[in-house]
Design a protein around this nucleic acid. Structure first.
Length: 423
RNA sequence: GGAGAGGUCGCAUAGUGGUCUAGUGCGCUCGCUUGGAAAGCGGGUAGGGUCGAAAGGCUCUCGAGGGUUCAAAUCCCUUUCUCUCCUCCA
């Protein structure tokens, strides 16, 4: 959500920003509603002031005088109630429009319609050449007996999987490696709750927009939601808090399972574990000073690249264009790793600068030099989507017989150099 | 799951319909005092909205939402969270 005063003062910027994001929202109507809202607030406040003043007098009166005053105040009270009701209605409409106004893209975000216009900002690493036909991760998982999809279907349906044996060791090796790295860089590691209240979903901006992507647990009893990303509980860590300015930036890395219904993606990436209902993810999150968020965004992108380089995976960095950005992000980079079986780059991580958009909804602030609370900036970035990282490793490190070499940097944690095929 | 207690301005507490625009203590802070400090004395000490160039004014917020009333921290309903005990459990 944007600041209404910012919208009023930067009409063109906000209108152009919405257009660049292909979001249709009537800013002029919003301004007209805001005018109405403001004048009603003044009227209602004036009536309340009258009531408050009369309240002190009524106490001192008695008999007829008191009755007269009370009758008089009854009228004022009725008037106030009627106007308050109108105001409540106006505010509801106002709020609805406010939630639709997107965060304007950063100046460094390329303008474009959709994902076809994302800009490749960087290419890194050499695409591996195989002197055999490379297998996809599903086949490799079957040969090594480390990814079991058939039995997961029995247990849970499509888009689920069992990781088994060395794949599990690989998963925790990735986690170990990244946690060590990030902790040494000053990130606080977190294991967050993955079931949250509805309020948390709204505060972080996932509701109402992405409601159909979220699992709702025991609607009439527990009424909780499974998070699609630990961004939600990480934001809630400082929900409605004012943080000391000198503590910023506050950097976290959370390890959690994530749950997504993937409604409307039937047929897309079917089979395999690229797109699943449940996956584990290490997510970076930063609460930072508004002046520092661009710098912070580059830092997070740098860490994401470093992780790709540690794993020696060929990748490209995309600067996501305006039309492909979500509402909260002013700027976003995706890092895509080369997937040999698909002969293209696929998204492994992503980092967004949400500026003050998300923090305003969740009311997270810091105190400026004058001691005034100000909304801070929030950023998030995937350190690793573990399942997809395993796919990239399997496919890029595969051998002719279907065995998979373990990336050098992970060997100490996996305890072996190679994942062998099952005899 | 059962029973009970409770959420008040950073912390602790007072407050059972109008004088609560919420008192007091602690903490913090500014000033006086002092050679300096302590003590003492005096002042300040939330957030949101709105009007205003500003100073400042008005208004809302006593966990949240709704209701009764001319008037609600206080009465009623709903809800949420915390704590204690029991039960269960990794």
């Amino acid at each position: 959500m944007l600041d209404i005063n910012f919208i009023r003062e930067n009409l063109e910027l906000v209108k152009n920003g919405a257009a660049a994001k292909n979001v249709s929202v009537d800013i002029d109507t919003l301004i007209a509603l805001d005018d109405k809202r403001r004048s009603l607030i003044q009227e209602v406040d004036a009536l309340r002031a009258t009531k408050n003043a009369a309240n002190q007098k009524v106490v001192q009166l008695s008999g007829d005088e008191k009755q007269v005053a009370i009758t008089e105040m009854k009228k004022v009270s009725d008037d106030e109630k009627a106007k308050t009701e109108t105001l409540t209605q106006i505010e509801a409409q106002w709020q609805e429009l406010m939630l639709k106004v997107p965060n304007p893209p950063s100046k460094t975000t390329p303008v474009g319609k959709d994902d076809s216009e994302n800009v490749v900002a960087k290419l890194h690493g050499e695409i591996p050449k195989f002197d055999f036909e490379p297998r996809d991760h599903v086949e490799l998982g079957r040969l090594t007996d480390t990814i079991d999809i058939e039995n997961a279907v029995e247990a849970s349906g499509s888009r689920f999987s069992y990781l088994k044996g060395d794949a599990v060791l690989l998963q925790f090796a990735i986690v170990q490696h990244i946690l060590h790295k990030l902790v040494s860089k000053g990130f606080t590691p977190i294991v967050p709750p993955v079931l949250v209240k509805e309020e948390a979903m709204y505060a972080t901006g996932f509701f109402p927009a992405d409601r159909e992507q979220i699992y709702h647990v025991n609607p009439n009893e527990d009424d909780l939601y499974l998070v699609g990303t630990s961004e939600v509980p990480l934001t809630m860590l400082h929900y409605k808090k004012t943080l000391p300015a000198e503590k910023l930036p506050l950097r976290y890395v959370a390890y959690s399972s994530c749950f997504r219904r993937e409604a409307g993606t039937y047929g897309k990436d079917a089979g395999g574990i690229l797109r699943v209902h449940q996956f584990d993810k290490l997510e970076m999150y930063s609460f930072c000073h508004p002046d520092k968020s661009e710098e912070e965004h580059e830092l997070i992108r740098g860490i994401e690249e470093e992780i790709m380089q540690d794993l020696k995976l060929p990748y490209q960095v995309l600067n996501i264009c305006s039309g492909d950005l979500g509402n909260p992000a002013a700027k976003k980079y995706d890092i895509e790793a080369w997937i040999p079986s698909q002969n293209k780059y696929r998204e492994l991580t992503s980092t967004s600068n949400c500026t003050d958009f998300q923090a305003r909804r969740s009311q997270i602030k810091y105190k400026d030099k004058d001691g005034k609370p100000q909304i801070l900036h929030t950023l998030n970035g995937t350190a690793a989507a573990i399942g997809r990282t395993i796919i990239a490793i399997y496919e890029n490190y595969q051998n002719a017989d279907g065995s998979i070499n373990v990336p050098e940097i992970l060997r100490q944690y996996v305890g072996k150099d190679k994942i062998e095929i099952k005899k």
